[in-house]
């Protein structure tokens, strides 16, 4: 039994395994089959100031090595999120830290959701600022691929909340380190990466796009090497905690991210394949550490940065 507990931007977590935004709903949906009291933290689906229908269907398709999605950030809006028993009131009883993922179409929207959550912050451990969704027409990735806009979003949110901020970076940039530095300078306490990669799939028989939105985000195993590389580069740029994700399916995958410099890892698509993977990954990290005689999970974080000599 290694010590798996971590301190992530001031948040005490029993282990470094977190659910990725959009893959675990608002936690209640999976509560029958996943023991929430085993998880490091849960991240909930992105919340905006207004209710959002999201994109037309089809919204998901399987591709080799993963899946594409263009859900389009469907969500009930901040009013319902705060008041409806299925959302924040439920999340307040969840026996692990809760990260609330937020988004908007304008900088003011981000600040508005953050301010509303600041006023209701009981039971919220941190805000994850999504500046990187490829699936909405306005905002989203535009913020995540412009250094100044990215910093402006983070600053606007920082001004209205004392909650720890985790900024979710877009993989759709050449120099990820610049973005990591920019959002940290603007007041982000941690960063998370990567979001999905903008992609496309075509049904050649019907000459139709497999996803109604045409462009959709790639997630799953095929994303992993890209994500590991970007976590490694982000770690070279900043010292704040990193939540690494992208194609993690096993404890071995998770350990790869930790070695590249992530302090914690998030699991998305793998939950769809196997909700049981969350506990398997936690137990698998523990077993791996024991096998290698490593007493504390923090001891493997970023080791690849020392190993280069």
């Amino acid at each position: 039994m290694a010590d798996l507990s971590i301190n992530f931007a001031g948040i005490a977590m029993r282990n470094p395994v977190v659910t990725a935004s959009g893959a675990f709903g608002y936690a209640k949906e999976y509560s029958n089959v996943v023991p929430l009291n085993r998880l490091g933290a849960v991240t909930v689906k992105g919340v905006s100031p207004f209710p959002s229908h999201g994109n037309p269907v089809p919204r998901t398709t399987e591709v080799y090595g993963g899946m594409l999605n263009a859900i389009g950030l469907q969500n009930p809006g901040i009013d319902k999120f705060i008041s409806d028993e299925n959302y924040l009131p439920y999340l307040r009883q969840v026996p692990c830290p809760v990260f609330v993922n937020i988004w908007g179409k304008t900088i003011e929207h981000y600040a508005e959701v953050a301010a509303r959550l600041e006023a209701e912050k009981k039971g919220i451990a941190a805000l994850e600022i999504n500046i990187s969704c490829p699936n909405i027409k306005e905002g989203g990735i535009a913020f995540g691929t412009d250094l100044k806009l990215a910093a402006a979003v983070v600053k606007a949110v920082r001004d209205v909340t004392t909650l720890p901020l985790i900024t979710k970076l877009s993989p759709n940039v050449t120099h990820i380190g610049d973005f990591a530095r920019s959002v940290v300078d603007a007041g982000s306490d941690a960063i998370s990466l990567i979001n999905t990669l903008p992609s496309m799939a075509i049904d050649i028989e019907t000459r139709s796009f497999r996803i109604a939105n045409r462009i959709a985000g790639l997630s799953g195993p095929g994303l992993k090497p890209v994500a590991v590389r970007m976590v490694f580069q982000a770690r070279e740029a900043v010292t704040v905690p990193i939540l690494g994700m992208g194609g993690i399916y096993s404890a071995a995958d998770a350990i790869e991210f930790l070695m590249a410099g992530a302090n914690a890892v998030a699991i998305g698509t793998a939950i769809f394949s196997n909700p049981g993977c969350l506990v398997e990954i936690i137990d698998g990290i523990d077993a791996w550490l024991d096998r290698h005689g490593i007493a504390n999970v923090n001891n493997i974080v970023g080791v690849m940065h020392q190993a280069q000599a």
């Binding site: 893959a23 949906e29 939950i271």
Partner: peptide
């Protein structure tokens, strides 16, 4: 409907 999570968590099947 084409489904993804099947659990009500992902909003693929709307």
């Amino acid at each position: 409907r084409v489904m993804c999570c099947g659990m009500g968590a992902c909003f693929a099947c709307v």
